[in-house]
Nucleic acid binder design. Structure first.
Length: 376
RNA sequence: GGGGAGAUUCCAGAGCGGCCAAAUGGGGCAGACUGUAAAUCUGUUGUCUACGACUUCGGAGGUUCGAAUCCUCCUCUCCCCA
């Protein structure tokens, strides 16, 4: 993997760049649609490519390991071939499931012992077998196994959690270096900064992560309930330590405003379920603000979902029609909303790139932040 | 023509003397959702000068301290037999 910075913003930490992977280039800043189970829910790959212009999608190691299972993905030749997606894939390690499936797991030095949410069967994820599993999945970018500590965490817990994450990271990174790709193309490994909302822990984590000199670095454990301002503070802190010449990935974030604030602070990559999940639930992110399409006020609004968009569903369909579909739980409604939201997120990233490149990012961001947070 | 069942808050449908402004589901309205156990979850849904008051359970009257619940008549629906 290779990362080249194109333009650095003068007034902020924002920058544009190009990540080159075995499955093609990624122009940053970038938003990566989440496709946990090898599918971005409700969105076909052709739509991802042609309408949304996604450059890379996510998969999830925990979920793919349980189903379809490595015994299917290996003979399939890896996830790319299995799902029919020839662009880059990043896989989360299952670290987030350590957090979100907390009742079904136990953490030890050795690893995370899980009870499958599907059948209750017991599994152990170690930093090593998570690397091996991601080798079998064949993701372009694999993530270290970490613990995403809940918010708030007291200092003692955060300290212990960070030590565990670092211990796991050391072993995972070692395993990565000792193993080779299974499908003849290069893979890379991103470590994850943790440390909850404690400046000394975050600093220590960012320094340790930086010292490994991996090809890219991630910030985890944010957007788990803390105020947005706190999140921004920690992005700033961590990014002041992480190497500038490596891509920085802010995991699980976020709202359109979060993305713009993150970019301003030097983040290059984002992923979030928000555009798809909230889209399915009737929340639309648009250039003018946020729409709850289920609201009665859109009942007879025959204007396009996003009139100036070059995504065809945005122009073809009216708000009233989309409302009708969502209210009636028609599958097509969830599909259109997901396509629209993702197209919007990718459009936003592309705009951000353009603004950084022509030196007007800060002014543009200020304007957009107000608009994007507006409830229509 | 004869016999039977029933009419409950937007709908369906509980309730069968006080704990009923009335269960539950649907619908309506609104909210939540941030590395997806989510096409999910939550709130609300008679009126008001609103932590209290007022008007509601087909209509009219009656019994009772007290009725959606008991009695009488009326109106209307549905079912069965001719």
């Amino acid at each position: 993997m290779k990362f080249t910075i194109e333009i650095k913003d003068i007034k902020s930490k924002a920058r544009t760049g190009i990540i080159e992977t075995a499955h093609g280039k990624i122009l940053t800043p970038i938003f990566m649609p989440v496709g946990t189970l090898g599918s971005v829910k409700g969105v076909h790959f052709r739509e991802l490519k042609e309408d949304i212009k996604a450059q890379i999608i996510l998969g999830n190691t925990y979920h793919l390991y349980l189903r379809p299972g490595i015994d299917v993905l290996s003979p399939a030749g890896g996830l790319h071939k299995f799902i029919g997606w020839d662009k880059p894939i990043l896989t989360d390690s299952g670290g987030y499931q350590v957090f979100s499936l907390a009742e079904n797991r136990k953490l030890t030095q050795e690893g995370a012992i899980f009870r499958s949410h599907i059948d209750g069967s017991k599994h152990i994820f170690t930093p090593e077998n998570i690397v091996e599993t991601q080798r079998a999945i064949g993701s372009d970018i694999m993530m270290a196994l970490d613990e995403c500590a809940p918010y708030p965490s007291d200092y003692a817990y955060a300290r212990k959690s960070l030590d565990l994450t670092h211990h796991w990271l050391k072993r995972g990174w070692k395993k990565f270096q000792e193993t080779d790709p299974l499908y003849g193309f290069e893979q890379t490994f991103f470590p994850i900064v943790q440390g909850s909302t404690y400046r000394d822990l975050r600093t220590e984590s960012a320094e340790y992560v930086s010292s490994l000199n991996c090809e890219g670095n991630a910030i985890g454990g944010l957007a788990v309930g803390e105020p947005a301002e706190v999140m921004y503070e920690y992005i700033e802190l961590v990014n002041s330590i992480l190497p500038e010449d490596k891509p920085r990935y802010l995991m699980g974030v976020g709202t359109p405003v979060n993305l713009l604030e993150g970019i301003e602070r030097g983040v290059d990559m984002f992923d979030c379920v928000m555009p798809t999940r909230n889209g399915r639930n009737g929340m639309l992110f648009t250039r003018e603000g946020i729409i709850n399409i289920k609201n009665e006020k859109w009942r007879s609004d025959f204007s396009s979902i996003e009139p100036d968009s070059d995504c065809y569903v945005d122009v073809l369909h009216s708000k009233a029609y989309l409302r009708h579909l969502i209210i009636n739980k028609e599958m097509l409604g969830a599909q259109i909303a997901s396509i629209h939201n993702l197209a919007f997120y990718l459009w936003l990233m592309n705009e951000a790139r353009n603004k950084i490149n022509d030196g007007s990012y800060s002014e543009w961001k200020k304007l957009m932040v107000n608009k994007l947070a507006t409830r229509l």
